[in-house]
Amino acid sequence: MADYADWTESIELLGSEIMVPFDVQGAYIQVPMDLQGALIQMPVDIQGQYITLDINIESVAADVTLNVNITASAVTINMDIKAQSVAIKSQGEWSPQAGQQKYVTFAFTSLASGTESYSAYTVPAGKTLYVTHMGYTVFASAATDRDYIQTSWARIQNATAATDLAYIGGNGGNGLSFPTPLKVNAGSSIRIYVGNGATRNVHGWGSWGGYEI
C-alpha cells in the first residue's frame, strides 16, 4: 500500500436522545464497504435496556442468498445466547416449516420367504433429496403364525447407481436414522426394499423420510 499520511475522522455524538436515520431510496442502491489493512477491527458494542437489532431481507422476485465467507488459518465463532427460548434450526428441522419434507410409506401383503418387495421414487429435475430415516415392520400373514420369529430386513438403494445405501434387519422390524442424511440427486431413483427372512409369508410396511430441496 502507498505511503499516505495517517487520517482519522471521528464522529462523536452526545445527547439524551440521538437519532441518526439512514434512509436511502433508489432503483439501484449499492453500499459497498471495502476495508483493506494489516489490522482491521470492527467492534460493535451495543448496550441498553431495550435492544432491537432487526435485519429484514425480503425479495419478492427471487431467492435471497446471504453468504458469510470466512477464510483464515483458524476461525472461532462464539455464540453466547442467554434467553428463555432460542431457535436455531438445521435444514432437517427447518424443512417441515418450509414444506420441503417427504414421508413415504409402502405396504405389501403375503411376501414369500426369501423374497423382497420394494417401492420407488425418482427425484425430480432441479431437486436433491436427503433421506434422514428409514424403517420397516412385518408380521406373519397367517394369524396362527404370528408367535414365530419374523426374521426380516430392509435396505435403501439408489437404484440408478445400483448402490445400496443402508441395511437394517431384525425380528419383525427395525428403524434407522441418518445423522448424515443420504443424498439422492435429481433424476436418481431411490428404492426401499423389505425382505422376508422368516419361513412363512408376511405382511408389512416400509418407510423412509427426509426432505427435498
Binding site: K102, V104, F106, A107, F108, T109, S110, T122, K127
Partner: peptide, 20 residues
C-alpha cells in the same frame, strides 16, 4: 404430482395384480 415431487406424503399399497 409424483413426477414433479410436488407432495409431502406418499403412501404406496402394493396390489396383488402387481399394480400400486
Amino acid at each position: 404430482k409424483l413426477y414433479r415431487g410436488d407432495f409431502n406424503t406418499m403412501n404406496v399399497e402394493q396390489q396383488p395384480d402387481g399394480s400400486q
